[in-house]
Design a protein around this nucleic acid. Structure first.
Lengths: 195, 195
DNA sequence: CTATTTTTTGAACTCAGATTCAATAATGCA
DNA sequence: TGCATTATTGAATCTGAGTTCAAAAAATAG
C-alpha cells in the first residue's frame, strides 16, 4: 500500500484560488493550477472530478466557515444587536483580508455557480444569509434599527457594497488601507451620508 | 450597390444582451445569438470582429449613455446636492429597469472585461464614476453630507450595493417591486440603519 | 528483495464552439 | 434586362484546453 504524500487536495485548492483570481474561472488553465500546486495535470482529476468541482469546493469551504463563525456571533448574549452587526461586518472583512485572492474569486465567480447549478451550491451560503437577516431583525425589534427598511433589501445592498469594495481592495491593496474601508462601511451603513 | 437591410448590427447587440444575460458570456453560443437576431452565424462576423467585441460594444453604449445623462444632472443649477444624488440613483435605476437583461450582463461581465482589457474599456465608465464622485464632494462642501467619509469608498460601496440589488431584481423581478428597492436604497444611503 | 497495490504522471485524445470563406442572394445602376 | 457590387449564408475548418489513461514511480507488506 502507498499513502498519498502531503496534502495535494489542499495544494490544488489553494493554487486554484490564485489562478481563478488572476485570470477568471474561464481563462484559468488546469495546467497552470497543476504547475502552481506542484503536481501533474492528471493529478487534478484524482482529487477533483473536474474543473467546476474545484470551484464548488472553494465556495463550500468558504461558506461553511463563514456560517459557523456567524453562528457563534449571533448566539452571544453579552453584546447587543448593533455590536452583532459590527461583528458580522468584521467577520467578512477579516476572512477576505486573510486571503485577497479568495475575495476576488468570491466576487467574480459566485454568480456563475449560483446561476448554473443552484441546487449544488453549498447550503451554508443560504444559512449565512438567513443569520445576517436575523441580526438586523433583532436590531429592529430592539428599537435600534429603522423599522421601515426591508430587511432583505438592506441585506443585499450591504452585501453587494461590501463585495465590490473587497474586490477593489483585493485587486489593488495599496490604494486604500482596509481599515479605512472598514470604518467607512460601518459609518455609512449605520448613519448614512446625511449630517 | 446594395445597402444593408434593417439594422442587423443592433439586432445582434440586442440578442447578445439577452443570451449573455441568460447563459453568461462564456456559455453564450454565437449561433444562438445569431438565431435570436434572425441572421446567419457568419453575419455576426460581418458586424463584429469577434465575440469579445460584441461585449465591448454593449458596455460602450451603456456607459456613453449613462455618462451623458449624469452630465446633464450634474450641471443643473436648479437642484441641490442631495437632489442631484437622488437623481443619479434614479438614473441608474431607470436605465436598468428598462432592460433587466442589460442589468445582469453589467453585473456579471463588467469585471471580466475590465480585468482582461482595461485599456480598451470605454472611457465613459471612468468619466461617469468621476462625475458621481463630484456630486458627493459637492454635497460635503455644501455641508449636507458627512465630511469624514472617503468619497471613493462611499462611491464604490453604493455602486456595489446597487449592482447587487439590480442583479437580484433582474433575475427575479417578482420578488421585490423595484420602487421599494429604490426607496430603501435612498433611505439607507442617506440616513443609514440607525434610528 | 520481490510482489502487490496505490499514487502520480503528462502526452495524447476529444470535442465543443469560435471563426472562416467560397458560394449564393439581393440590390442598385446603366 | 443584365452587370457589378455588396450583403448574407452556413457548412467546413481550426483551435485550444479539459479530460483520459496506460505506463512509471513510490510505498508497503511478506
Amino acid at each position: 500500500m502507498r499513502l498519498k504524500e502531503g496534502n495535494k487536495g489542499n495544494d490544488i485548492l489553494t493554487a486554484a484560488i490564485k489562478v481563478f483570481a488572476e485570470n477568471g474561472y474561464h481563462n484559468a488553465k488546469i495546467h497552470k493550477i497543476a504547475e502552481l500546486a506542484g503536481v501533474a495535470t492528471g493529478s487534478i482529476y484524482v482529487y477533483y472530478k473536474n474543473k467546476e468541482t474545484i470551484l464548488q469546493k472553494i465556495f463550500e469551504q468558504l461558506w461553511e466557515r463563514l456560517y459557523n463563525e456567524l453562528n457563534v456571533i449571533s448566539k452571544r448574549s453579552d453584546i447587543n444587536s448593533v455590536e452583532k452587526f459590527d461583528a458580522m461586518l468584521d467577520l467578512l472583512f477579516d476572512v477576505f483580508i486573510q486571503d485577497p485572492a479568495l475575495a476576488v474569486v468570491f466576487v467574480n465567480e459566485q454568480n456563475l455557480l449560483l446561476q448554473k447549478k443552484p441546487k449544488e451550491f453549498t447550503p451554508y451560503y443560504q444559512k449565512f444569509i438567513d443569520l445576517g437577516e436575523c441580526i438586523v431583525v433583532e436590531g429592529i425589534n430592539n428599537n435600534v434599527f429603522h423599522p421601515d427598511v426591508d430587511v432583505k433589501i438592506v441585506r443585499s445592498f450591504i452585501f453587494g457594497g461590501l463585495r465590490f469594495l473587497l474586490h477593489q481592495w483585493a485587486q489593488n491593496p495599496g490604494e486604500f488601507p482596509i481599515d479605512k474601508i472598514r470604518q467607512n462601511v460601518k459609518q455609512l451603513t449605520k448613519q448614512g451620508l446625511l449630517l
